[in-house]
Write a protein that binds this DNA or RNA. Structure first.
Lengths: 301, 301
DNA sequence: AGCATGCATAAGGAGATTTGATCCATGTCT
DNA sequence: AGACATGGATCAAATCTCCTTATGCATGCT
């Protein structure tokens, strides 16, 4: 592998060869004529022969220079084109990894607005409970449900992972749900759901001591909610995601009381990429767009 | 003209992409792994996306990296090939500009030995009295007759531009040339030749005051000598160049006295190119090869 | 478990690169 | 012709990139 001459000097040569002028090359490269002169001298010493013939008011390529120039320009054209394209590739595709709950209950319905506002950005959403590692996987941003904000990443709270009991209208009727304590009579979709006990306590209902096992349904409320709609029991879910179902009557939220255990749905991405245009565009769209979710603490109407 | 990312970082990327290893790329580039890591980081920030996926014991190209790598490698291959070839082009052809006298009387006869010793170097000799300007014309070295050693160039004395009277055997006979003063009776090829008067003075002959006009036959003794051989008169020439003619009897050098006015035949080339292999080779050949010309001060036998 | 491999990071410094001022030669304009 | 404009070369000084050393961290192998 033969060592190349200093690349800076090659770039200078390429520009000078195209312009046949040190001064104009310097302008293009954003440096002074003196610097170009220096770089050409470096390269001439490395190559071992003059690259230009210094004529009074102009320069000409020497035999050696003429031999080198076309190929060098070709190489630089390739590089310029390649990196120009990369900008399109990089800026033109936004890759989002989202927890399934958020993906299906909010993103799917709203992402169209982002695409409308940013038609030049293609969007790829991957819904997975898996916590992406930006170093290992190729995602630009992620939407995660968590309470621990990892260092090195930027975090924007989109929505608190609040929870409230919900069930089908039929069950409300069947079990005569009038006050929080009544819920204990309703079959639970997830038995011994810690969220339920936490919520009951908040509602002033004394509950049997719970196993207090680690637990999180964050990002996987879909099945829970689907079962509740089907009338199979009581589900603890995040109200904001089911405003539609409540509005349409498929689901009933019998009490305005809302529990919260500190978890939240966050938009996150590597600090280093904070200024990437597409990430900026997405952040500047989704944070205001979820504003409503954050402020409506009580029942969504 | 879109500005390219730092070329150093592109080169690092190219090497890493080929090796799929920071460490091995660093070895190839002759730097440390830390430096490569730094360069890749730079480029990733510029491109706006990771170029490699950091997996436990190895790295993989990201989508972006994979898109860039082939073209970047192509560009660098072009550059490597181009500059590798240039070495051949540059080192393989030695361009000599020589004053005609030296070219025809010494170089023509001896350059074959140089080519024998350096078969990989093609030689082009241009005989011209014109003093080349290395900045404007494409010559590697020049052989000039001068007394003023210009700055910025390296000068090697090959031969002092001495002079002595010579004439054909017939004229020696005809004019009864026995001692220096006798030469005044012989027709001069160049009338009032300053070299003749200088030489006569040196030989102890008082001469009429000379016009003392600027004069130099340096590098154009050919015609002078040819006329002398043809018997048309007395010529002042550099003995070293006509040893053959004297030996063969075509020309007679009647006196051992040698004049010198400070001029010399020099090999010269730009200081900056002092280390060019072919120039080095030529210098290392011609300086010893002309050793004999310099040391034999008197008549050549 | 302990070691080897491979990349990331921080601080510091050496060196390359750039600049700014100036010089020089030549062509052009009045 | 003389003054000016153009284009490159040169030098010293300031700058800033780039590299190295040292170290940390995660992972896979023995």
């Amino acid at each position: 592998m033969s060592a190349l001459p200093p690349l800076t000097s090659i770039r200078a040569f390429e520009a000078v060869a195209r312009h046949l002028s040190f001064t104009r090359a310097a302008e293009e490269l954003g440096m002074t004529q003196a610097a170009v002169s220096y770089q050409i001298r470096i390269l001439e010493e490395r190559v071992g022969a003059p690259l230009f013939l210094r004529r009074p008011r102009q320069i000409a390529l020497s035999e050696t220079g003429a031999r080198l120039a076309p190929d060098v320009t070709k190489a630089f054209d390739t590089l310029r084109e390649t990196f120009a394209d990369s900008r399109g590739l990089v800026d033109g595709m936004l890759s989002i990894s989202s927890v399934p709950t958020f993906a299906s209950h909010w993103l799917a319905a709203n992402i169209g607005l982002f695409q409308l506002a940013n038609p030049e950005i293609a969007v790829r959403v991957e819904a997975s409970p898996h916590l992406v590692d930006f170093g290992t996987e190729e995602f630009d941003v992620a939407i995660r449900a968590t309470s621990r904000l990892q260092d090195g990443l930027v975090w924007h709270l989109l929505l608190k992972a609040e929870f409230a009991p919900m069930l089908s209208p039929r069950l409300v009727e069947q079990y005569q749900v009038r006050e929080p304590a009544d819920l204990l009579r309703v079959p639970q979709i997830t038995p011994d759901d810690p969220w339920l006990y936490a919520w009951l306590e908040l509602a002033g209902v004394s509950v049997p001591p719970t196993p207090d096992r680690p637990f999180s349904r964050l990002g996987a409320q879909n099945l829970e909610a689907a079962a509740a709609i089907a009338g199979r029991g009581l589900a603890m879910v995040t109200p904001a995601f089911y405003a539609d179902d409540v509005a349409s009557g498929r689901l009933v939220r019998p009490f305005d009381i809302t529990g919260w255990d500190g978890h939240g749905y966050y938009l996150t991405y590597p600090e280093a990429r904070r200024n990437s245009p597409k990430i900026k565009a997405f952040r500047d769209w989704i944070v205001p767009a979820t504003e409503g979710l954050r402020s409506s603490q009580g029942r969504s109407e």
